[in-house]
Amino acid sequence: MGASAKYLPRDTVRTLSRRSDVWGAWLTLHVWGVIFAAWVMAILWTNPFTIILAIMLVGSRQHGMAILMHDAAHGVLFKTRWVNEFVGQWLLGAPYGGDMQSYRHYHLKHHRYTQSEDDPDLPLSAKFPVSKASLRRKFWRDLTGQTFFRLRMASRKDTTEPGMEAFQKSSPVPTLITNAVIFGVLAALGHWWVYPVLWLLPLMTWFMAVLRNRNIAEHALTTTDGNVLTQARTTHANWLARVFLAPYWVNYHVEHHAYMYVPCWQYRGLHKAMAEHHGDMEIQPSYRRVLQLASAG
């Protein structure tokens, strides 16, 4: 929290920083519940439309798992510490290929050096604005799996690649175990094909595109002067954007950088409180508008 506490009264911050095992459990059940519901839909009504819709829903919830793991990395997803650590690592991070312990070290460095030369996320935002054609090519590479395989190959070769640090692992074992469980359960139910088509494929495609959209929205074309209100961006998200692009209040990013120990389910209240006390936050009306700005190069 640090110096950012000056933006709101301490009592308000203390209330908004309250953690809850009930909320943590609900959000974890919700992210897996949406994935399960998408699988059931595609199994019961198998056709191109439901498969594509399921890929988008699962990919968005894999992103949701990354968001909730991010909260766990800050120690705020659950009130009970051991539950926070276990769920963040095994039920949220490992299934999609994340490692909460490695991510925590990387991500706290991002908070400490936001938008400075030492920010590990800076290469993801410093390149903007780009041309419209360049932005289309980036998303095409995401949606066709090229970005996924480039990052995986870079990690195997131990080379530097923008965005790769977020996927570093202390060990591949949790990911291998959790994915074996997912495949085993689906195979036992007689639907083994769901694993490659509606787990791996979303991870290789839609998840990568949504992650790029998030990286652009959060820090591209923001200030580098150390002002916490303008070195990150909050983006308003309608219900469709929340379903497919920005679940679990991830669009409130100025608020997160100002008070990083507030749980995500408190972000709406935090946004309202900050808007009342300080009107100079970097806010955009939609993700479409952010992408317009990012492709104005």
Rank of each mutant, 00 (worst) to 15 (best):
G190I: 12
F128I: 02
V197W: 08
I182R: 07
T178F: 07
K127I: 11
P123N: 05
A217S: 15
P172H: 02
G184F: 08
G163C: 14
L186Y: 04
L151W: 04
V173I: 15
A209T: 11
T205R: 01
L221Y: 00
M204C: 15
S171G: 09
N213K: 05
E117I: 12
L201D: 11
F128K: 02
V228C: 00
V210D: 06
I182G: 05
S131I: 03
F128L: 03
L221F: 03
L176K: 12
L124T: 01
E218R: 03
D118W: 00
L124H: 03
T147I: 04
V181N: 07
K127N: 06
T159Q: 11
W193H: 08
Y195V: 03
T178G: 06
A166S: 12
L135T: 01
V181P: 04
P162L: 06
T160F: 10
F207N: 14
T144P: 04
D225S: 13
G190A: 11
A187W: 12
E161P: 00
L151E: 03
M208G: 03
T223I: 13
R137S: 12
T175N: 10
A188F: 13
S125P: 05
T224Q: 14
A188V: 07
D142A: 13
D119S: 12
T223Q: 11
V194Y: 04
V185C: 11
D119M: 10
T178E: 05
K132W: 05
R141F: 04
Q146I: 13
V185A: 12
F183N: 00
W192P: 14
T160A: 14
F183P: 00
V197C: 09
I182E: 02
A188D: 08
S134I: 01
V173H: 01
P129E: 03
T230Y: 02
L203H: 07
F207A: 15
D158W: 02
F149S: 01
R212D: 09
T224E: 15
E218L: 07
A166V: 12
F128C: 01
K169T: 13
L176D: 02
T178W: 01
M164P: 03
E117R: 12
R141K: 10
L198N: 12
D225L: 11
Y195F: 15
L211P: 03
N227C: 15
F207Y: 14
P120S: 10
F167Q: 06
L203W: 00
L211H: 10
F207K: 10
R156S: 09
V197M: 14
P202Q: 09
N227W: 00
N179D: 04
Q168K: 13
Q168T: 11
I216T: 05
T230G: 14
A188Q: 09
P162C: 12
N179T: 06
F183T: 00
F149D: 01
E161G: 03
A220T: 14
K157T: 05
R214L: 10
L211R: 10
R212C: 05
T230D: 08
K127W: 06
L198V: 15
K138S: 10
E165A: 15
L186V: 08
T224W: 00
V194E: 07
